[in-house]
Simulated assay, not measured.
Amino acid sequence: MNDQQYPPQQPGWGGPQQPYGQPPFPPQPPKKRSVGKAVGFGCLGIVGLFVVIAIIAAIAGGGDSKSNKSSSPNGVKASASSKKDQPAGAGTAKSSETKAETKPAKKVVTFKAWGTAPAGALGGLDIGYGSDSDTRKGTFKNGKFEATLPLNKDALYYSLTAQLQGSGDINCSVTVDGHTKKGHASGGYNICDAQLNSGLLGGWD
């Protein structure tokens, strides 16, 4: 008999032999792709795409609204810029004008005479008017005379006198703060006299 020893036979006698000294390894099975993971990643990608589109649309819409607000003539920003464009002190000037308009007008005293008064040997109609502290002379022209003086609250009275020069017929009046006093004269050298006196309570009569 032959005493030569042979290496032990590998399983699968008669099949392809493995290299000497290496243990046999079974073939690796093919990797299976997870259907659930693929579907999940696909859904997430679609959702993410919609989110990105929505963000872009929101940004674009916000920019348009801001531009519309800034360009709108009735917008808040436009009104603010128009206020800035106004010159300094414009509001103060308007308020001062309003105050000037609301100031009451200064009161005056009105003196009048009218009618016919032919000139005589001493001249035309002799007119004197004013207050206890201020007397003046007037001129009768074209059948009438009219003059005004600032109202002095400290005056005791305001009066008008008009003396005829031989003939004529005249009327006269004095008006103070809405109160009027009248007089009349006719013929000769008669005098038309109208006078308003200051009352104790500040009125005129």
Rank of each mutant, 00 (worst) to 15 (best):
Q5G: 14
Y6D: 05
P7K: 09
P19T: 15
P19C: 15
Q22D: 06
P24H: 00
P26E: 08
P29L: 00
R33D: 11
R33F: 05
G40K: 06
L44T: 06
I53F: 13
A54R: 04
I56Q: 09
A60F: 12
G63R: 06
G63M: 10
D64R: 08
K66L: 13
N74L: 13
S79P: 04
S82V: 04
K83A: 15
K83V: 12
K84H: 05
G91S: 12
T92E: 15
K94T: 15
K94N: 12
S95F: 11
K99P: 02
A100N: 08
T102A: 15
T102D: 14
K103M: 10
P104C: 00
P104S: 07
V108L: 15
T110V: 12
T110M: 08
K112E: 08
G115K: 01
G115M: 00
G115H: 03
T116C: 05
P118C: 01
G120T: 05
A121M: 06
A121Y: 11
A121W: 10
L122S: 14
L122N: 14
L122P: 03
G124K: 00
G128I: 08
Y129R: 03
D132L: 07
S133W: 01
D134Y: 09
R136V: 04
N142G: 11
K144T: 13
E146G: 06
E146Y: 03
S167Y: 02
G183D: 01
S186D: 10
S186W: 00
Y189G: 05
N190L: 06
I191E: 11
D193V: 08
D193W: 10
N197Y: 08
G199W: 05
L200T: 09
G203M: 04
